[in-house]
Write a protein that binds this DNA or RNA. Structure first.
Length: 511
RNA sequence: GAUUCCGUAGCUCAGCCGGUAGAGCAUUACACUUUUAAUGUAAGGGUCCUGGGUUCGAAUCCCAGCGGGAUCACCA
């Protein structure tokens, strides 16, 4: 395999060999114990100077400012960046100056990972720095790292902005773009905060099958695969709802799962084929309880993350202070279109869609038409967190019928910044009603709706043993993270978003 | 899947009414022992995404492909 190397790559390989010739292992096996981090030093040095006299840190060289017999460099570790000062006569106290003149100045590059020993001091320009007394190469980098420079006002120069580069080589993106790192740390903090709240509420974190023989719990095109030993088709789950409810039947009174779900559909800035949903179910509760619980949950997540309930999102400020506004779907449509669709039949709804200029298909039923009106004319208006409640029964085959309103179900969606963040129900636990709803889905399928649900007979069997009244919710973790980190693309909150495979040089030569 | 824009040095980009490739940073060499987008002087570095076509001549024009972005459709 012939690999085309750039000038800089060839040079770095030569340096690698020269280091070996000098008896220096560019990839030493032994540990390098550290006793400080960049963030720790910058945070605590000023008030605890006595304890920063014998410091060992390790990290990647991010820049070098060479002053002749002394150098300033910037080292980056997991916590941030620290300036280090390397003076020739300090790292080479004797006659032999080769460690500085040859190794440090000629053979080390930006991107190399090094270990340092020294003492912390403040430069005359006021920057807390490490005065290096010993240095050791820990890993030689063979590819040049793109350099992003930032001036005093924080303006970035030559920031790597090509999304293809950033997503395919996320490891590089993470090294050179600190705000990318921050986004992913926040993502984990969001999940940790949710986990703590749910654990404190007595819910049990569980795992349920990713490989399912019936892809239930939602309507979407699944990925299909094949199990050799059983010689059966299996689907990657599109949801875990039906399995979590089986656990409620089994006697757990509160369960949750952060689930990777998979849907074989289009990709864009809000859709990735695999994505993460938090679902949780609590027995003996209803959707009103779930609204109260989930608004407090989100308020806490945001407060844990930012110390306030307000989040900046594009040019909007969103306040997650509970309680959130609650609007029924019919009220929302009335408010934003002027039409009262509450008593309308299918023909009436088609008429309304026509007047509003909404495109509809022949196979759309009553529920789908209402959903279409809401999606086109209402959804985008709800910037501040708002619960939209009481959906038409046709669109919600797993939801209990409304306690008072005919034709509706006890369902809500949480809208934030004009988009759906969560979807919740008073769960349908009447097994005979559930069977009828599944059969209605079959009829929709026959009518041409390719999104209708599959019938899961084992799930029906489970319900026949009796499921307590239960409230359940699904929260899109990727979208929640986008919202709380001010990112407009799902690719920005997934470490490795789905991409078309690269044509590699070895694959090319095989052809 | 449809429409549209983009693909030039390690990175960010210029060049495009066709005449054989440029800048800044990065790299290399020299100078400089508290600099910080360090500085000064000099140098090297390119399958101009791939393949065809038009032409005396293509980074530039045309066609096809590959990859990416945006919008739309499907969906969370």
């Amino acid at each position: 395999m012939s690999q085309h190397l750039s000038e800089q790559e060839i040079l770095r390989r030569q340096k690698l060999q020269q280091l070996r010739d000098l008896g220096i292992n560019p990839y030493p096996p032994e540990e390098f114990p550290v006793n400080a981090t960049a963030a720790d030093i910058k945070e605590n040095y000023e008030r605890d100077k006595i304890n920063y006299k014998d410091i060992r840190i390790a990290g990647r060289i991010m820049s070098i400012r060479d002053m002749g017999k002394a150098c300033f460099a910037v080292i980056q570790d997991a916590t941030g960046r620290l300036q280090v000062y390397v003076r020739r006569d300090d790292i080479c106290p004797g006659e032999d100056k080769s460690l500085y003149d040859t190794v440090w100045k000629k053979m080390l590059d930006i991107g190399d990972i090094i270990g340092l020993q020294g003492y912390v001091f403040t430069t005359k320009t006021g920057e807390i720095s490490l005065h290096v007394t010993e240095l050791k190469l820990l890993s030689k980098a063979l590819r040049p790292l793109p350099i992003v420079k930032t001036d005093e006002e924080g303006n970035s120069f030559d920031e790597v902005s090509d999304p293809e580069f950033r997503y395919r080589q996320r490891y590089v993106d993470l090294i050179i773009n600190p705000h990318v790192r921050d986004t992913f740390i926040k993502r984990t903090q969001i999940m940790t905060s949710i986990r703590q709240t749910l654990n404190n509420a007595g819910l049990l974190e569980v795992e349920t099958p990713v490989l399912q023989s019936i892809p239930g719990g939602a309507t979407a095109r699944p990925f299909i695969t094949h199990h050799n030993a059983l010689n059966i088709p299996l689907y990657l789950r599109i949801a875990n709802e039906l399995y979590l409810k089986r656990l409620i039947v089994g006697g757990f009174e509160g369960v949750y799962e952060f689930a990777k779900d998979f849907r074989n559909e289009g990709m864009d800035r809000t859709h990735n084929p695999e994505f993460t949903v938090l679902e949780f179910y609590v027995a003996y509760k209803d959707y009103n309880w779930m609204m109260n619980f989930s608004e407090k949950l989100l308020e806490k997540v945001v407060t844990d993350l930012y110390g306030t309930t307000e989040v900046q999102c594009g040019d909007k400020t969103i306040d997650f202070k509970a309680p959130f506004k609650r609007v029924t779907m019919y009220e929302a449509i009335q408010e934003h279109t002027g039409f009262d669709v509450s008593g309308m039949d299918e023909a009436g709804l088609r008429e309304v869609c026509h007047k509003l200029g909404i495109h509809v298909d022949a196979h759309m039923g009553k529920g789908k038409l209402i959903d279409e009106i809401f999606g086109e004319k209402c959804e985008g208006h709800y910037i501040q967190p708002t619960f939209i409640t009481d959906y038409p029964v046709e669109m919600s085959p797993l939801t209990k019928k409304h306690r008072t309103a005919e034709g509706l179900v006890e369902r809500f969606e949480l809208m934030v910044n004009g988009k759906e963040i969560a979807n919740a129900y008073t769960e349908l636990n009447d097994p005979l009603d559930q069977r009828e709803r599944f059969e209605d889905q079959l009829k929709l399928q026959e009518r041409g709706d390719d999104e209708a649900m599959f019938i899961d007979h084992d799930f029906l069997r489970a319900l026949e043993y009796g499921m307590p009244p239960t409230a359940g919710i699904g929260i899109g973790i990727d979208r929640l993270t986008m919202l709380l980190t001010n990112n407009a693309a799902i690719q920005e909150v997934l470490f490795f978003p789905q991409m078309r495979p690269e044509v590699t040089s070895s694959a090319q030569s095989e052809e």
